[in-house]
Nucleic acid binder design. Structure first.
Lengths: 216, 216
DNA sequence: TGTACATCAGTGAACGCGCGTTCACTGATGTAC
DNA sequence: TGTACATCAGTGAACGCGCGTTCACTGATGTAC
């Protein structure tokens, strides 16, 4: 739930006239709403109510509704980028292990932080809304591209695809698996778990690049 | 635009007291709205206005707001399934050509019918909302799985992945490419066109299955 | 240590708006005679 | 062919609602003296 202890929400008594950490409490209320009721289910008023506060109080901390959900997304990208970086590091010094770990990290993030995921990818806010948001999203993308660049060193140069294309493929497959199979939305449930689907899909893809043996 | 000639919209004069084909006009108004203003931008009232009619008139043809957007999605799945079937047929008798054609058809559909695409995949309506909707969505999925089954006959049985997994991978990559790179949403634009990205991604994947040569 | 005061986070009432939905109605259409 | 009538698609007024946003205010906090 990632809730600071000082930060009351609807189920906790308010401290008094002043909240203490309303800004973050509002972000977390927004994340809960978006997680429980989908991207449409978030309203400024209800987030305020969840945080135990009048809607007008929100305007002490945010320019408006859009600004609040954008901050939720920004925090999501921050966690996401950290998670990708951690996955990359944990696979080192093997370029292959590092790359596979980042692929898994995408799905793991969507599972563990569904509110953030929705704010980032399904709420309709543009990543170019603010420079900060664009920068942190770029940081996340850069980790994946770095992992792809490392790995592509193991492909003979003449048949080596650009690393940006490489990472785009993996990003697309990860995103597709999450959207279609991990979140219950349009795809009926597949007989395979999203984790298996992503693992095996990336496996076939890497074999196609000649990076893992045909017998593996 | 797929608009029947008998079917006036906002920019055409109404025929009189009776509309003629209001039901379909409302569906097309909803598709236009959703295409131009995103999944959130659709309201029953505005769709009615676009069709040159009072909001109350909508209730002669639909149970309510949800029912209208669900019908738009249903028609989208119908077109989608037809398109997939056509692509599959056009690649015959080559299993490989048929499969690659269905992959391309996914992206082509998203490009040519953005309103339908959004209604189907981004409006949040569940595919299990009605039996009709579930059935036509299944029909679309079956085409891809049939293409995958055909193709997997060319893989030695002991290293042959299940066709359902096979088609799920391609569906996921196609969906991911569309969401991240063809619709402008979260991913900044990549240096590669979505078409190139999907083509090359599927190419690598099929090479990984041993279905096309390493020199291709 | 005690008091006056500045700060500013949150209040609560109010606003205009567009939403989805209902209802009794009206009038165009097309069919039966 | 002409007229009476049944049908039912669309009207328009009304509803209650929750939304985002504004404003003058109030009162808790913590600092200066």
């Amino acid at each position: 739930m990632r809730r600071s202890a000082r930060c009351p929400t609807s189920d906790m008594a308010k401290r008094g006239y002043h909240h203490g950490n309303l800004r973050q409490a509002l972000v977390e209320a927004a994340l809960d709403l978006v997680r429980d009721k989908g991207p449409t289910g978030f309203t400024l008023s209800e987030a305020a109510k969840k945080a135990g506060v009048t809607p007008a109080a929100v305007y002490r901390h945010f320019a408006g509704r859009e600004d609040l959900i954008a901050e939720a997304a920004r925090q999501g990208y921050e966690v996401f980028a950290d998670l990708m970086q951690f996955a990359y590091d944990s696979g080192q010094p093997s370029a292959l292990a590092a790359f596979e770990a980042t692929g898994r990290a995408y799905l793991a993030f969507a599972r563990r932080y569904p509110g953030h995921y929705i704010a980032m990818f399904e709420s309709g806010i543009s990543v170019n809304r603010t420079p900060e948001l664009a920068a942190v999203a770029q940081r996340a993308r850069d980790v994946l591209e770095k992992a792809a660049t490392d790995l592509s060193q193991h492909i003979p140069p003449e048949k080596r695809p650009p690393a940006a294309m490489f990472s785009a493929h993996i990003w697309a497959m990860s995103h597709g698996v999450v959207e279609l199979f991990a979140r219950n939305s349009p795809g009926t449930q597949s007989p395979f778990s999203p984790e298996d689907l992503l693992e095996s899909g990336i496996g076939v893809y890497l074999r196609g690049l000649g990076l893992i043996g045909a017998d593996n």
